[in-house]
Design a binder for these strands. Structure first.
Lengths: 330, 330
DNA sequence: TTGTACGCGTTATCAC
DNA sequence: GTGATAACGCGTACAA
């Protein structure tokens, strides 16, 4: 690889002027600029990104912290973020936190060490108090996560409203005995609290009770969904509909329903979440909450790029609309 | 962030000796070593990776070139590679080639620029002649791709045998009129040629013909599979089984089968490929070829790490076994 | 407008 | 065993 010194030799022009040409500084005579450009061309010169990075003048990589790549929601998110970033020649580094607080902090530390120039958090395990200090070292933003604080840029979906819409849909279809299944916890202030609140609001509006034995927490996989349906069917008093936290879980339910000869939606309605490709594959196909992952990913990338280029960007709080896709499971 | 100079000041010991301590050089007195370590501790000093990289003494990132993250096969591959690499504090950079030759070369160029320290190619678009020159700039290896050349390390699955096993399975089940659907082309020497050859071998052994009108190329998605099934059903002369190139395509077929009231496997058997989670979700559940993605991913990471640490590693050609998972679609 | 000299943080070479 | 010094490739304050 040719270096700036090679260009200096070949063009007979000083290093600083060459550097000025590279960085498009105005004060360079046309003649020298031409000569330098020609030498660069002939040598196929490209500035060494590592050296630039050491000088502190380069932004070329952002880290994306997610729980797990194999979750289609996140793989789609990666896809759209990577596409947009690559248009700006910025590299995306994948960091799987595996829901570990330690790993999350380890990854954030890479910002401090200038291993990455910015970090998009698509999941947060630690308390915000632990995360905010890292803002000092470079841009950190949230994507698909919501935390009350004005300090950190956020791109997100309105999960409260999503859950509300979902439950309203069930109610309007005539279901009253509604079960709930979440990937988080059913606490006032824990993971997925927005969805929980949306559920509560919709249920309370109709005066419907949330029965504790019909609430399932920390459910994520197809296998989890399978098991939930089995447990529901061992109950004497069963719900007539269930609102799940993901299409995977809902898909798992369709599986055990088939095994147990349970009819969906006649015996029980199942509402998914995410609108993943598999929502069309199950039998019956899933009614589900559509999340605009593509828009969210591109927007997150755009925000990060603005964070790189502008000093004090304002209004860095985006909320994207969510809708319901009606198929056969409700 | 504290630098080596800070450690020098705090410990009163020269930069060279501090550096020796950092890099575990033997010739340092116990006393100085202790002092230096203590200063490092107090300052929470970590060597600056960028500076190390510029000196050429750091290997900390590998790029993974794949066509598309959203393909579950690749997202699982990413998962396993990232997990293993992160055990060694090595970062994984995702590069989606989108099946573009130009993009692939662009990414390979990052090796030249020392933006990444090694590259795993999980898909190759260009001819090997275009790729081999990059070996000069750092480790490049193939994963899940097979190209005849002794020069480049390879971790792969025996696709020829996989296809052979699949077709054998269909034949043993009594199917004789076998259609074929591939993500590549049906050429002697193009993409997916190994699978093609496995198919040919199995068919020829039984004296079965491969009928051109029953061969579908360049099929990848659920939508593609859906369409293929529709086209098959418009034929007067239909196959009694079809061997697909991926579970997605097979899943798409189950969808249009349902729409057209085609019974699987009674009217037509469908054999998937990959053994993805969705293979259990379709109706009927897919018989499919199981690929040990987990092992392959970990092994690829291990090979790359050996490429970093050993100078002239030998025997860098691994082939993992493949098996068939029998469910309901055949 | 142009060029010299220095610093970014590290490691390697060379003397002592 | 130890420490001064150069070097990696680049950008920039400063002087000219």
């Amino acid at each position: 690889m040719a270096t700036i010194s090679d260009v200096v030799k070949k063009s007979g022009i000083s290093k600083s002027t060459v550097s000025r040409v590279i960085n498009n500084h105005p004060s360079v005579s046309e003649e020298k600029r031409r000569k330098v450009l020609q030498a660069m061309e002939e040598l196929a010169y490209t500035p060494n990104p590592t050296a630039r990075r050491m000088r502190g003048t380069l932004k070329s990589s952002v880290g994306l912290i997610i729980p797990n790549v194999t979750n289609p929601f996140f793989s789609y998110l990666i896809h759209h973020i990577e596409q947009r970033l690559s248009e700006h020649s910025i590299r995306l580094i994948i960091m799987q936190s595996s829901e570990s607080r330690e790993k999350e902090l380890e990854f954030l530390d890479l910002l401090k060490q200038k291993q990455v120039d910015g970090i998009i958090l698509a999941a947060v395990e630690n308390e915000m108090e632990a995360i905010l200090p890292y803002l000092e070292y470079g841009p950190v933003m949230l994507c698909n996560e919501y935390v009350q604080t004005g300090e950190i840029p956020i791109v997100r979906l309105d999960q409260e409203r999503a859950a509300y819409i979902g439950v309203r849909h069930l109610i309007e279809k005539g279901y009253r005995r509604i079960a709930y299944c979440t990937g988080g916890l059913f606490a006032e202030d824990g993971k997925d609290k927005d969805r929980n609140n949306g559920l509560r609001r919709a249920m309370e509006e109709e005066g419907l009770p949330i029965r504790p034995e019909w609430v399932f927490v920390d459910q994520h996989t197809i296998a989890d969904g399978r098991e939930v349906m089995r447990r529901l069917w061992q109950m004497d008093d069963r719900p007539d509909a269930i609102f799940t936290g993901s299409d995977e879980v809902a898909a798992g339910m369709t599986l055990s329903a088939r095994e147990l000869s349970i009819r969906i939606p006649e015996d029980i309605a199942v509402l998914g979440f995410d609108d993943q490709p598999l929502a069309e594959l199950t039998y019956p196909q899933l009614t589900t909450i559509h999340q605009p992952i593509d828009e969210m990913g591109r927007l997150a990338a755009d925000v990060m790029i603005r964070l790189f280029t502008e000093d004090k960007p304002q209004n860095m709080n985006y909320e994207l609309p969510i809708s319901i896709v009606e198929r056969q499971s409700t």
